[in-house]
Simulated assay, not measured.
Amino acid sequence: MNDSEYLLSEYSFERSFDERSAIDWMQNNWTNAFVFCGLYAVMVFGGQHFMRERQKLNLRRPLVLWSLCLAVFSIVGAIRTGWYMLYVLSSSGFRRSICDQGFYYAPVTKFWAYAFVLSKAPELGDTLFIVLRKQRLIFLHWYHHITVLLYSWYSYKDTVAGGGWFMTMNFSVHALMYSYYAARAAGLRVPRPLAMLITSAQISQMVMGVTVSALVYRWMHHGDCHSYLDNIVWASLMYLSYLVLFSQFFYQTYLRAPPQDRQAGLAPPKTAKLD
């Protein structure tokens, strides 16, 4: 067994996962994502109204556990999908890594592709901690949650090209981000440059998202890059809007912020401040 075969060897739960049933379920039920988003909007804005005249809750321990669980999930997902993407890149090249639909069906990644899209629903719970702790809730936070959930479920049902890059990048960034959140919630002092690094990684993810979407559009007409024009349009608009919003956040938080805020070091997008 060579190194690549060892790194790509699958676990029994990955090998036995029925991706065809998962894809069929998503094709029939992906619109439920709108229901989750509607309930989420009620939680966000109704919850803020409910908490307006009430004392904020101390949820530090539950927040540590929540962030730690998501961090572990993201780390494992990043490792499993990352090894597969590296294998495809090294064996078949960059174009194949974007256009190949094998990410949705390969024994190593088929489970993690489905776990990724499903995880976007429970991740909405991030906002509940902000609402109950009466912290500043920025537009980027709830906009990002809603659009990622909708696009992930919408795209998985069609197993479109580019999904391997989108999911692997998101797993990797979330591995850093939720680890950071867990450390901050636990009261650990994390160096400010690390927060800047995470936001920079998020911005790089958006640049790559736009690039992948453009390449899928270019190669789709050659017949070996499966996607649809409407999917590419939505992906491009989503990643472009993220790029603008995350860049604006970086500038306002780390470059334009008052000296005291710069010294304190605000957390990266999605939670604003954790303490």
Rank of each mutant, 00 (worst) to 15 (best):
T271D: 01
Q263W: 09
Y84C: 01
S92M: 08
G82S: 02
I23W: 11
S16Y: 09
P269F: 12
A183E: 09
A257M: 03
V117A: 07
L63A: 05
Y151M: 06
I79Y: 11
F250L: 10
Y228C: 08
S12N: 11
S236F: 12
F116E: 04
A175E: 00
D224I: 03
E123K: 12
A175S: 12
M220S: 07
I130Y: 10
Y239M: 15
V88I: 11
I146D: 13
H49P: 01
G163V: 08
L86Q: 14
L140H: 06
Y217F: 09
R96G: 00
L128G: 10
D230W: 14
S200G: 12
F103L: 01
V108G: 04
R60A: 15
L118R: 12
I138L: 13
I23D: 00
P258C: 05
Q135D: 04
S16R: 09
P259V: 15
L132N: 06
K56C: 11
V210E: 05
Y84S: 01
F116G: 05
T199C: 06
E14D: 09
S152M: 05
C69D: 02
V160H: 03
Y87Q: 07
Q252T: 10
S236Q: 05
S97R: 00
W142M: 02
K157V: 11
S90N: 12
R60D: 15
T253D: 12
I146P: 08
Y228E: 14
D275G: 13
Y181S: 00
G223T: 02
S90I: 15
R52Q: 14
Y181I: 00
S21F: 13
Y11M: 14
W66S: 00
Y151K: 00
K157Q: 14
L59N: 05
L86Y: 07
L70E: 15
N29W: 04
S92Q: 13
R184Q: 05
A175R: 13
H144C: 06
W112Q: 06
Y105I: 14
L274M: 13
F139P: 04
S97Q: 00
D126Y: 09
Q248K: 13
L128I: 14
S16P: 02
H141I: 05
Y178V: 09
S200K: 15
F139Y: 11
Y217S: 14
Y87L: 01
V244K: 12
I232L: 12
F36C: 06
V42P: 03
D224E: 11
Y242C: 07
F73I: 02
W30M: 03
A214E: 04
G38Q: 08
G163K: 01
R80L: 10
F129L: 10
W165L: 08
R192H: 10
L7S: 05
E10H: 13
L65H: 10
I98A: 02
V131W: 07
L7F: 09
M1A: 15
L194R: 07
A267I: 06
Q263I: 07
S172L: 03
R95D: 04
Y180Q: 08
V212N: 01
I203L: 08
A33P: 02
S21G: 04
I138D: 02
R218V: 14
P268C: 05
F171P: 03
A264L: 08
G47H: 10
M1S: 13
C37Y: 05
